[in-house]
Design a protein around this nucleic acid. Structure first.
Lengths: 347, 347
DNA sequence: CTTAGCACTCTCTATGGTCAAGTGCTAATA
DNA sequence: TATTAGCACTTGACCATAGAGAGTGCTAAG
């Protein structure tokens, strides 16, 4: 983050923020007269015009056409947001409380924690709510159980520390008695309990490479079963609130809507984006063209990972137009992430 | 279905179908001249005009404005579709083959059968693909397993005949040893194996009412566990292809898009709709205002249940504008439903 | 009953004029 | 020197008008 005070003096900064704020509240280009009238800065429209021209030259503002007011560029929003979070007095306590009350109800229903949080976020913000359940990779295995299924398949049931349970049907090319299966399960439990799935997969690969020849058949089978079962575990992505977003004036034209719907339909790309952002701490903000995803260059994304100690146990966020109520969106994402972190840490 | 030949003579019918077909191909009102030129019926535009006026009076056609060509009403589409399916020579073998090839790849991955089918349907039809997994209710229980989880919770694992496996964590207000759990599981298996979850729930409720007092504690617990586990099983709804649909000229105006997005966001309503339609055999077609859901009165829905004998094992469908390529859409839905039926019957 | 001919209706597009908002520039001012 | 008032200028939004094009309904003739 650049030291902004070096770039702009106090007055310019105030005017820039006034323009951004006004534009966020009312989706029309902001003129010098409006700034002078609404934001008592004690200077005339003419002076403001001069400064706004400077701000435009520096790339913070732009004009839709030569006789309109100014609107912020992505860089202008960025400046505004950086100031915002450095001030940190922007949090709306009432909003947070409201959000917390709504989320409170989800505590018992961990299955639907992410899907319902997504809905809550979207209704409260009027933007798109997104959430991603954690990759099961990061969970610690408590134990596994194995059962015969039919004559050539095995069901592996994974119990994790955090109360997540997963089944996986694995087809084998040979028959194993339930007794064999119990022995295999015993072996897996003794070796792997207490490790995360991610660690286990590493271990398996290592072992396989190291002492390939020395295993007995049973262990080979155990490894195969684990590898198949663990490999297929996926995270889930939830997106909610499209119809609400379409009511915003920012989506009055068809092109924007198409872009957005293309963007959210390509879930794989979004998962990758959220994944990358989840590695960082705190609320991440990506404004318009800062986004590397082509379809999202007209939108802003606010994301926060949910952390249990330093493991990511989920991701929540908001997607909306660049003309977004950033203070509100940031507060919501921050709060929801903290809430989910708490829920998933308690147990 | 009314006997259409009573209502319209051969020539009127041909003209009506010509208008519908032409409008489906090119989204502009169809004039008498166009019909005369493209569809060699051997009559002049003037005659066609007269007949079209009659068809309008009968409610099959309408004019966007008094000097435009005609477009079909929902009733017009209905007439066309009824004729279509009575002729049944409308099926595009090549399309079906293509679809079958694409679906073929999904055979191994039953987890993603419905989600992937939805995508395939939408890319092929250019409309919205929808699919609903069966309510787990209808599956036959093979066996259940119970495990302690922590000190006051139980994991129940359901194995069904069709290879569906479900876990459910049930919190209890008392502690049970694994030995107790095994006894309970044994009881459940002996009583319920071979029944569908739906039947079991009925049985439980009956039993509870009948001989409330006579049970020992263990059985009461068994009932409680089953009831909790079985109650929460839900079907899943998949929808795909929104961004593709937005490219259609029918969605050039914002209002339609909003309606559609509201409609598909209210998953509960759609599930109810599909559920109702799944009771019927064969491909169901709902055209515009025939739909009881307010938000969907501007769209058409083509749905078919996937059946295994007479149980519904899933539902697939297409949602699109009333100006839909019905032959194509019907063929796709019909084929996809048959495919899924086959997959889920085999095992 | 069918058809040719024609007047009529309606949308669509282009055109031009006015209005309001807001700018940039210049000259006056503190 | 920095600020401000004043003013000419630009531009999009809005509206009315006019002409072209498409298609109709009606009438009269075949």
């Amino acid at each position: 983050m650049v030291n902004v005070s070096k770039m702009l003096n106090e007055r310019s900064r105030k005017i820039l923020c006034a323009v951004v704020q006004d534009y966020i509240n009312f989706p029309d280009p902001v003129g010098s007269r409006t700034v002078a009238r609404k934001y008592s800065l004690g200077i005339s429209p003419a002076t403001i015009r001069n400064i706004m021209a400077d701000l435009e030259e520096m790339g913070f503002l732009k004009q839709p056409h030569s006789s309109a007011g100014r609107i912020p560029t992505d860089m202008g929003y960025r400046f505004y947001v950086d100031i915002l979070i450095s001030e940190s007095g922007y949090i709306d306590r009432e909003l947070i409380q409201d959000l917390y009350n709504r989320l409170e109800d989800l505590k018992d229903n961990i299955d639907m924690l992410f899907s319902e949080t997504t809905k809550t976020i979207s209704t409260l913000s009027h933007y798109l709510g997104v959430a991603m359940s954690p990759k099961p990779d990061i969970f610690t295995i408590k134990k596994v159980k194995l059962f015969q299924y039919g004559h050539d398949a095995v069901v592996i049931t994974l119990f994790t520390e955090k109360g997540l349970i997963k089944n996986k049907l694995v087809s084998l090319d040979l028959e194993l008695s339930q007794k064999d299966l119990n022995r295999i399960a015993g072996y897996i439990n003794s070796e792997f309990a207490g490790y995360t799935i991610y660690e286990i997969r590493r271990k398996i690969l290592n072992e396989m490479a190291k002492e390939k020849m020395m295993w007995d058949k049973l262990i080979t089978k155990a490894m195969k079963i684990c590898e198949e079962a663990f490999f297929s575990l996926q995270c889930e992505l939830f997106i909610s609130g499209l119809s609400g977003v379409l009511e915003l004036p920012d989506f009055a034209d068809l092109q924007k809507i198409k872009e957005l719907s293309r963007a959210i339909e390509d879930k794989h790309t979004i998962i990758k984006l959220l994944d990358k952002l989840s590695e960082l701490d705190g609320v991440q903000i990506i404004i318009g063209s800062e986004n590397s995803i082509e379809e999202m260059k007209d939108f802003s994304v606010i994301v926060s990972a949910c952390k249990d100690e330093n493991r990511t146990v989920g991701t929540v966020g908001i997607v909306g137009p660049t003309r977004m109520n950033y203070p509100k969106a940031i507060s919501i994402v921050h709060t929801a992430a903290r809430f989910i972190s708490e829920i998933l840490t308690e147990r």
